[in-house]
Nucleic acid binder design. Sequence first.
RNA 1: GCGAGCGUGGCGAAACCUGGUAGACGCAACGGACUUAAAAUCCGUUUCCCGAAAGGGAGUGCGGGUUCAAUUCCCGCCGCUCGCACCA
Length: 875
Amino acid sequence: MSRYNHREVEPKWRARWAEAGIDRALAPDKAKDKPKAYVLEMFPYPSGRIHVGHSRNYTMGDVIARFRRANGYNVLHPMGWDAFGLPAENAAMERGVHPGEWTRANIAAMREQLKSLGLAIDWSREFATCDVEYYKHQQAIFLAFWKQGLVYRKKQKVNWDPVDNTVLANEQVVDGKGWRSGAPVETRELEQWIFKVTAYADDLLDAIGGLDKWPDKVRLMQSNWIGKSQGAKIWWELAHVPDELKAGAPATGQSHARDPIEVFTTRPDTLFGASFLALAPDHPLTKTVAEFRPDVAAFIAKAGQLGTSEADIEKAEKFGIDLGIRVKHPFDESWELPVWAANFVLSTYGSGAIFGSPAGDQRDLDFANKYNLPFKPVVLPAGADAATHTITTEAFTEDGVIYNSGFLDGLPTQQAIARAIEELVKLKRGEATTQYRLRDWGVSRQRYWGCPIPAIHCAKCGVVPVAEKDLPIALPDDVKFDKPGNPLAHHPTWKHTPCPQCGGQAERETDTLDTFVDSSWYFLRFTDPQDASKPFDKQMASYWMPVNQYVGGIEHAVLHLLYSRFFCRGLRDCGMLDLPSGEPFASLFTQGMVVHETYKSASGQWLLPEETDVRDGVRVDLATSKPVQTGDIEKMSKSKKNVVDLDAFIQDFGADVARWFVLSDSPPERDVEWTASGVKGAWGFVQRVWTLVEAHPQPAPKTDATAPAMESDAHALRQLAHRAIQSVTDDIETFRFNVAVARSYELVNAIAKLKGADAGSVFARGEALRILAQLISPFMPHLAEESWERLGMTGFVATAPWPKADPALAARNTVTLPIQVNGKKRGEIEASKGAAEAEVREAALAHPDVRRFLEGQTVRKVIVVTDRIVNIVAA
RNA sequence: GCGAGCGUGGCGAAACCUGGUAGACGCAACGGACUUAAAAUCCGUUUCCCGAAAGGGAGUGCGGGUUCAAUUCCCGCCGCUCGCACCA
C-alpha cells in the first residue's frame, strides 16, 4: 500500500484538466440548455507572492464554481490582476525597477501560485488592468461618461498626502493620515476630475433593497455611506450686522456679507424652538468677520487645530463665538436671533450652517447650556404633560406633538415638518430639499502608474477630450522616479501634443485615474476579454451578467462595490451595457480572513513562523534559540510576517490540504486561525481517504448498479452516504463549508467502521467511497480525481454530474423519539416514521425509566410531536 | 454617541432560519493496541459536579418573560467585535 503522493498527483491532474480544457467557459451559442453561472472572486493586486491567507477567498469561489459545473451550469470563473497602483512606483523608487517590470514579474509568480492551488479558472480570459489593451477601453468609457455628463472638473479641496505626493480619496484617509504612507494629510485646492456618482444617489440607495443576496451588514454600510436625509433649506434674512460688514468688508469685498444665511435642517418643525444660528469655522461669513475681529480669527485657528482623529472628535468640547450678527426668524420678522460660529458645525455638509434648536438636539443643547443661550421645548413626547414637561440637559430628539409653536401647535412631528415647509415656501424663506452624505468621486491621481486621463489642455479651446480614434493614450515607458511628484508631468515630451480642435500646441492631462476605476468594470471585460474594438460586447455581457456569486473581503463593502454599481449605471445610460437594474453582483459573500499568531524576537523584530520552533513547550527563535514573544492573532500580513508561504506549504502538504484547512472549522464569514494542529487534521484526512480508497477492490459500483442483499450495518452505511449527499449539497449551496467538511469526516468515519468482506459490505463501501470522492471534489479536487480513477470510474470527477441522493435511502423510516417528563429527558423509544400519536403515547408511558419518574404522580397531559419528541406533563 | 453582529466544553465549532435528545465534526488531552523504541496508524474516554457503578443533579454571558418545552422567540443588563461618527 502506497502513501498518497501529492507532489506527483496534483500536477498530474492539473495538466490533464488543462489539456481537456474543462475550465473554459462555453460561448453562449455552445452552451445549449445549460444555465450560466458567473462566479467571481475579487481579483488580486499583484503585490508579490501569495500566502495561504489569500487562498481562502479563491478556494471559496472555486468550490462554488466546481459545484455549479457539476450541477450542469455553464460556468464563467475568470482571474485577472488589479495591476495599477502605488506600490509599483514605490518599488521603482526604492529599487530602481520599472513599475511595469515589477508588476509583470509579480503577476507571473502569482499566476503560477494560483495555478498550483488547482483552481478551476478559465485562464484564457486573464488580463491585467495595466495592459494597454485593457485601459484603452477604460479611456473610451471615460470619454463616454464625459459626453453623458457624468464627468466634470472642479477646483476642490483635496486630501494631499505629502509623502506620496498625491491626492487621496476621503476613504484613503484613515484617522487623518494617508492609508499607505501614514503621514498626516494636508488640505490643498486642486483642479480635479470628478465622476458624478451623486447623479445616481437615489437609485443607488433604492436599489439596495433589491440586493437580497447581499449581507445585511454591507447593505447597511452602503446606505449609511449614501446617507440620504430629507429636510428643508431655510434662508435667514439679516437683521443686524456689524458696521464693518455694512461697509462691505474691504479686504475681500465679497457680496455674501449681506446675503441671507442658508441653513439645512431635517427638523423644520422645531423652528419655533430656535435660539441661535451657528456657522462652521470655515464658513465664508465667519472668515469675513474674522478679518476685523481678532477674537474670531483666534477661534477659527483654535477650531482648525483640533485633530480629525476619532479620539479627538470624541473629546472635543463644543465651543463657539458670537459673530455680532443678528437674523430674523422666518416666521416672525420681529424675532431676532444671534449668529454664532461653532466648532461642531461641519462646513462640508449642507450649507455649513445650522439653526440651533436646543430642546430638540443634544449638540445644540450642550452649546446653549455652555453659553447661556435660551431654549424652550417645542416637541411634547407622547404621554407628557405640556404644563410640566421641561428640558434641562437631555434633548428630546424623537417625534412627538408640537407645542409652543404658533400655527404648528398640535401637529405631530411629521405633519408639522410638512406644514412648516409649506409656510417657508409661501414666505419665500425656504424650500424642501434632500441632502446626501455621498459626494462625487474625485478620480484624479498625480501618479504615473495608472490609466492616463484622455484629455488635452489647450490655451485656446480649454479642456478638450481626446478623439476616440487617438486612443489609446499609452503610458510612456521611459520615466524617471528621481524626484517627488508625478513622473508623467516631468516627462520631457509625452505631454506635448496638438489640440484636437484648433491644432495649436497643447498639453495632455498628466493625471491618471484612481485605481478604483480599473476595478469598477473588470468583471464586464471578463465576459469578452479579447475584444479589441470595444470594452466588451453587449450581448456577451448580457449573457453573463450579473455576476451570480461574488466573493471578497468586507473591506470593499463600501467603495469598490458602490463604484462598480455606479459604473454599471453609467455604462447602461451610455448605451454600452444592457443591464436594466444596473446591479453587477446578484449575490455577494464576504469571507473572513485567515489569521495567525505573530512572533517577535528578543530584539523586537517580527519573525516568520518558520523562523521559530517550539522546544519543550516554549517557542524559540531558531536563529538565536532565545524565546520569542508571542503576540496577537492577526490577519496574515507581510508587515507582521505572520504569513505561511503558499509554495512551501504546497510542497510539504499539497494544495488540497491548504484548501481543506481554510474551509474547515470556522464558518466562512468568520476568521479562521491557521494552526499547525489544524494542518495536521487536514493532512490526516487526506491520508485516511486515500488509505480507504486504495484498500477497496475496484471498480466501485456505478451509479445505477443494483445493490445486493446486505446486513443492516452495510445498509446503514448506504443510508449515511445518501444523507451525506443531501447535507453536503445543501451546505455548499448555503456557504456552510465548515459543516460540509464535518459531514465528510462523518462519512469517512463510517466507511472505515464497516469492516465486513461480504458482497453487501463491499458494495456499500464502494458506493460510499464513490460518493465521498464526488462530495469532496469541489474542496480537494486532486485527491478526488485520483480516488475517482482508482475506484475505476471513467472521465473526470470534476465534470461528472453531481450525485443525487436516493430518496428511499436518505429517508428515515424509523426515528428515535426522546421522552421527556416535565421537560426533562428520561428515556427514548424507537418508532416508525409518522407513527400514530396514540401508539407513540402508549409506548412512551410504558417505558420503564419513564414509569419510574411518573411514580406517585398523575399524568396531566401528554404532548406528542410526530417524529420529534414526547413530553409528559405530570404532577 | 448611533447602528449592526456575536457570546455554547480546554480550543475551533454544530444545532438557532422553522422552539422539541445541547455539544455533530475537528483539534488538544488522557488511556489502550501495534512497535526494541519513537513516529505513523488503529481502538477507546473526554461539558461540569456527586457516585465504585447504576444513576442523579447542574449547564449554552447575566436577570426576567412567553411556552408542555427556550441555545433558538421577546424584554432588560453585561462583555466583545465591526461599521459610522458633531451629517443638523
